[in-house]
């Protein structure tokens, strides 16, 4: 479980302007959940997740990971970082080693694990992200864009975190690459990991997550199940999130008087329309 209590944070720019980035955040993220944190650029979502493994210290407020308060003065942040994996945006930009294998091994080696354990974890992590053995001996820079991203994610998975947080995991990928990443997120969630990812796409959140947290101007704007959140599509569009096209189509049909619930995937929309057709014929 991740619990955030009354968290506040302001950027210290040094110049005259201090920018309040996070305002009185209270949140709880349950174990084994799959949560999307959505909001437009500058809403504070990246800043918030960097707090969750102690990379940023809040100005005030507390963060608990399971029963450990990581904001306590003497918190063992290194251990926290092995429990809470954080994959940055464009993580492939952090690849550095001569081979993909060595890159993935970086995390486990920092944990001071034995050579056999490191090896076991590298292969396991590579398999999880769908990299076969062959690319492991290659230089990370020879891989394709999507492969690089998955290799970088494997580097975090190899630490076997209980919780994995990903910042804009699909940014910059083409549709096929996006699909692969979201399939991976779902797979990791099924394997028992607590997953949290940020996105500015309502569609990605709708397709992948169970719960959705919406941030706007450094505050929690809304929080709930996917259905609860997307029932409020109009409000979300007002704060600069773009709704899936089907949601807009459904809204317009509803305005015409059709009995169509708020939907956010093509499948749900088809179901709603077919139900009406069924009613008409039967």
């Amino acid at each position: 479980m991740i619990r955030i209590e009354n968290l506040n944070y302001a950027y210290k720019t040094g110049a005259k302007n201090q920018k309040q980035a996070l305002v009185n955040i209270n949140l709880e993220i349950a174990d084994n959940s799959l949560t999307a944190l959505i909001g437009h650029t500058g809403s504070g979502k990246s800043t918030l997740i960097r707090h969750l493994n102690g990379l940023i210290k809040p100005d005030s407020g507390k963060i608990f990971i399971d029963d450990t308060e990581i904001t306590a003065p003497k918190a063992d942040l290194r251990r926290v970082r092995f429990d809470v994996g954080l994959v940055f945006q464009y993580p492939e930009q952090q690849l550095f080693a001569e081979t993909v294998y060595k890159d993935i091994a970086f995390g486990p080696e920092n944990m001071k694990l034995g050579a056999d354990e490191v090896k076991r974890r590298v292969y396991e992590a590579a398999e999880m992200v769908g990299l076969s053995e062959k690319p492991l001996e290659k230089s990370p820079f020879e891989l394709s864009g999507g492969q690089k991203r998955r290799a970088a994610i494997a580097g975090v998975l190899a630490m076997k975190p209980k919780k994995l947080i990903m910042d804009e995991p699909a940014a910059g990928l083409d549709p096929r690459g996006r699909e692969e990443i979201f399939a991976l997120i779902k797979r990791l969630h099924k394997s028992g990991m607590t997953m949290l990812f940020t996105s500015h796409s309502m569609e990605d959140a709708a397709k992948t997550a169970e719960r959705v947290i919406v941030m706007d101007k450094g505050k929690i704007f809304a929080e709930g199940s996917v259905a609860e959140i997307f029932a409020r599509g109009g409000e979300l569009r007002k704060i600069g999130l773009d709704a899936p096209q089907v949601t807009i189509i459904a809204d317009k049909l509803r305005a015409l008087g059709y009995d169509i619930p708020p939907v956010y995937t093509v499948e749900q929309m088809l179901l709603a329309i077919r139900k009406i057709i069924g009613g008409k014929n039967g």
Partner: peptide
């Protein structure tokens, strides 16, 4: 700064 944070998140010291 971002790379340092990212590698720190992977346990770099």
């Amino acid at each position: 700064d971002r790379i340092i944070k990212a590698q720190t998140a992977r346990g770099a010291d």
